[in-house]
Amino acid sequence: MSFPPLSPAPDATQERPHRYHDGRTSTLKISQRERPYPEGRLIVSRTDLNGTITHCNEAFVEISGYTREELIGQPHCVLRHPDIPRAVYEDLWGTLQAGNKWHGYVKNLCKDGSHYWVFATAVPNRRGGQVVGYSSVRREPSRKKIAEAEARYKDMLAAEEGSQ
């Protein structure tokens, strides 16, 4: 698995070790800068069954900081922010693989180390009775919901790190 290169902005000075679901680790350079959600828009992407990005809309491309060419064919976990507990992603993929709809609040990592918050809903794409991939559609969350998610995820992260 190879990711398109991160291109940390000058303010992305915080180094954070990050372990992916496949056991691979990397050190991410991030900032605390939040990108505003594009008002009135949906951020849309689709993946195949392995989580490889097959489609992303313009809003996704713009806010991620990557080009469309950099994103298509990449694993969706390129967006993973180290502040989101692994349990959240495990719940997402477990729910989808069981054939169900998942939703939750997610902080996504941009190419330059900044981030944006979304309320994400992911659904299995069924064609002829078979699941052929997954669609994820993100909407703008309220600040109150973001604050609640941040507090919850902070506790979850602490528990995950404590168990390692």
Partner: peptide, 14 residues
């Protein structure tokens, strides 16, 4: 067919 299915998946997420 896939265009319509894609739109319906989007609606489903809403």
């Amino acid at each position: 067919v896939e265009d319509a299915e894609f739109m319906i998946d989007l609606m489903d997420t809403l």
